[in-house]
Amino acid sequence: MFNNKSILITGGTGSFGKRFVRKILKDYKPNKVIIFSRDELKQYEMAKVFSQDKYSCMRYFIGDVRDHSRLSRALVGVDYVIHAAALKHVPAAEYNPFEYIKTNVIGAQNIIEACIDQKVKKVVALSTDKAANPINLYGATKLCSDKLFVAGNSYSGHSGTQFSVVRYGNVIGSRGSVIPFFLNIKSDGIIPITDERMTRFWISLDQGIDLVLKAFSVDYGGGIFVPKIPSMKVIDVAKVLAPECEIKIIGIRPGEKLHECMIGEDDSPYTFEYDDHFIIQPAIHNWYLEPTRFGNGKKVQDGFSYSSDKNTQLLNSKELLSILQKYTLNNSELVFLDEVQERSTVPLNMTSILKNEIPLQMK
């Protein structure tokens, strides 16, 4: 799919971008892989791992999705785009709403228009469970972004750029994830939990990448891809990571939900189920009625919803610990063991970290 093609990743220095680049360089022979982001330090750090000397296809472009002209220039000759750039911090969005709209909404519009103008073949935008039935500004901006990307297929026409969306929950090990946060504060003896009832969806970076690749593989645009992934109470995650610590209930933060939802009841008429994922088809133009779109998918029942508290697939402590064995902790970030050597990181045994056998300063 990506052999001899040019791929651009917005926000490409983040956890997803770095893991996706590793996957692409391993499995394909792309013409170019362009990292488009606004943080020169993160690009410098990433370029030390994926250097142009070692990978001649790599390119690093400084730019912001708010800047349409820069985007348009960067997209010249690009075949595929993964849109991962976003402002994501829920409480910060409540206090800085204009900035989130500029990046998450106007930025999405800029991506869509620039990709159509530059005749990009396909775009997959990363979304979040917070975009379904949003109660916070971050979720509202991502819902708006999702709607823009779905509608982008109307602007591009049948032979133009195809736009799809991938929506998933909390990524284990990503920057800002609660798991490295818990691991780094467990030495204090107290783990803060906003509400003991709170549940979340959990997905690994590799699962997220597989879903993005699946979205690229279909021959139409407009679908919102939702993975079937497990849920777990946040308090249970804390007990697995720091069983010796006291749990302190601190109250829900501004804009925070008790439970997350990835498919709301109102989307059920347009949702089709597959073995390991769902696809919410576009309601516009009655596209969801076209048999070529849903293939062997089975339409869900009216009133169906997919939420973290009613999810029948639960992540237990043994499974979480098994997943964590693939990581080590480095500077407050979970790092895959297969990345340790490239980062010049001293590997730390996750079992020892969980047992407090390694002091915090070594982490």
Rank of each mutant, 00 (worst) to 15 (best):
Val123Pro: 04
Ser156Gln: 06
Gly17Ala: 12
Tyr288Gln: 08
Asp276Lys: 10
Glu265Cys: 01
Gly176Arg: 14
Ser51Trp: 01
Gly173Trp: 05
Ser69Asp: 15
Glu45Tyr: 08
Gly176Asp: 11
Leu143Ala: 11
Met350Gln: 01
Phe182Val: 00
Lys363Trp: 03
Lys363Tyr: 01
Glu339Val: 10
Cys115Leu: 05
Ile224Arg: 07
Met46Ser: 12
Gly295Ile: 10
Gly255Gln: 00
Glu290Ala: 14
Lys363Glu: 04
Lys186Phe: 06
Gly63Gln: 11
Thr194Tyr: 11
Ser307Gln: 08
Pro254His: 02
Trp287Gly: 08
Gly303Lys: 05
Thr199Arg: 02
Gly160His: 04
Glu196Asn: 07
Ser37Gly: 15
Val218Ser: 04
Lys228His: 08
Leu334Thr: 07
Met362Gly: 03
Phe50Asp: 09
Gly189His: 05
Arg38Asn: 13
Val90Asp: 08
Leu348Arg: 02
Lys363Arg: 07
Asn31Val: 08
Tyr274Pro: 01
Gly14Phe: 06
Ile235His: 02
Met262Val: 11
Lys130Gln: 03
Lys42Val: 04
Cys115Ala: 13
Asp266Val: 06
Val212Leu: 13
Lys18Val: 11
Leu324Gln: 05
Ser204Pro: 15
Gln313Glu: 14
Lys298Val: 15
Arg19Val: 09
Glu256Asn: 09
His259Gln: 03
Asn133Ile: 02
Gly208Ala: 11
Ile9Met: 08
Lys42Tyr: 04
Ala140Asn: 00
Asp210Met: 06
Cys245Pro: 06
Lys88Pro: 13
Gln325Cys: 06
Ala93Ile: 01
Ser204Leu: 10
Ile353Val: 07
Asn153Met: 05
Thr351Cys: 05
Val171Cys: 10
Arg200Met: 14
Phe272Leu: 09
Gly169Thr: 13
Lys48Met: 07
Ser268Thr: 06
Leu205Lys: 12
Gly17Pro: 12
Asp129Tyr: 01
Arg293Leu: 15
Leu324Thr: 03
Tyr55Lys: 06
Leu137Asn: 00
Gly251Cys: 06
Pro97Phe: 00
Pro227Phe: 04
Ile229Met: 11
Ser317Val: 00
Glu244Asn: 14
Arg73His: 14
Glu94Val: 11
Lys142Asp: 00
Glu94Ile: 09
Tyr155Gly: 04
Val21His: 07
Leu71Glu: 07
Pro134Leu: 07
Lys310Asp: 14
Thr351Asp: 12
Tyr168Thr: 14
Ile106Phe: 02
Lys102Phe: 00
Gly222Pro: 08
Asp188Val: 07
Gln43Lys: 15
Ala92Asp: 12
Ile7Asn: 00
Pro30Val: 04
